[in-house]
Write a protein that binds this DNA or RNA. Structure first.
Lengths: 170, 170
DNA sequence: GTCATCACTGGTCACCTTGTCCAGTGGCAC
DNA sequence: GTGCCACTGGACAAGGTGACCAGTGATGAC
């Protein structure tokens, strides 16, 4: 849908102070409350803002170890493997990818030892041929969106700002 | 810090309906408003809830392509590489890991063609020796936390699990 | 040139939630 | 038993929310 500068500033503001209200946001942005309300509604219904889910830290609830596992899947077993992985609570995220690994998933565990249990559970399934795991040591850039939002908002009001896309879609 | 069943239910509720208020949450959970307020405060100050940032969909603001890049870093260049990657808006996340790759980052781009530009920018840096990229095709399990929360909450009231504060079960 | 459309402004309104008190109750450790 | 703690259920003032409305300026169509 695309966003303009005001949308960008609003998103930044929400990212900085998520519990901010519409009224306070309108004050900070220097626009009328109705404007912020309308923009927010548009961003939500347009799918830009998926929600305001609580950002829960797995480490704080007893899962301090994070790892990424690349999985190689037996031909034709994709659906089963997806269902299997979705049933494991420690699998926080799963992607199917190009390349030699067929899937990439994010895991958490209670300890390095516990990670072994999780991995065993993940790969202990018919359709998974091979798995290679990388344990996360540090997270220099935690999941973020503000820099991208800023760039997207600027692209909107610079003539020709949309970066050389043009290439084929997926 | 550990969470009990009530915390777990509260977190689930917040994940389902993030804009829910304290009052409404207390009604749903069948407890007094003050209780929910106190729990929420404890979860936030205890670091379980990092925040309520808006969940922005990169695809909706013009970046529909996601990829994961595994980077190999020249010895001793870690800090520089981290700073470099942090300066690229399309880098949404960066981890340092064990294993043959030294870093793993999540990228987005405006198109497959644009991904080339992003990758060039990412790897066009002294300290990066080699990069291998996997483009995400599908995301069968989007980043989620509820199953883990549920498991953590149950662990708390099973003998041998973490002990919750007074008050007892509800 | 004129008109309709659209977003934004600045205002009002009733309703409800929030934050913050309070006293009272029951489980638990000492 | 006594103190501590969490939870309950109630109260209060303050303020925000969602819903309206008329007026204004820019844009694009006729």
């Amino acid at each position: 849908m695309g966003i303009d500068r005001l949308d960008g500033r609003l998103l930044e503001l929400l990212a900085d102070e998520p519990r901010i209200g519409v009224l306070e946001a309108s004050r900070r942005l220097g626009v009328a409350r109705g404007t912020v309300q309308a923009r927010l509604e548009r961003l939500k219904s347009g799918g830009v803002i998926r929600g305001f889910g609580p950002d829960v830290d797995p480490a704080a609830i007893g899962y301090p170890v994070t790892a990424f596992a690349t999985l190689e899947i037996k031909q034709g077993q994709g659906a089963d493997v997806r269902a299997h992985l979705a049933s494991v609570p420690e699998v926080l995220e799963l992607h199917t990818t190009t390349g030699h690994g067929d899937m990439l998933c994010r895991l958490v565990a209670r300890s390095n030892a516990d990670l072994q249990r999780v991995i065993d559970r993940v790969v202990g399934f018919e359709g998974i041929v091979r798995a290679s795991t990388a344990i996360v040591m540090e997270n220099p850039v935690p999941l973020r969106i503000v820099p991208l939002v800023r760039q997207a908002a600027q692209a909107a009001d610079v003539p020709g700002g949309e970066v050389a896309g043009g290439g084929g879609p997926l």
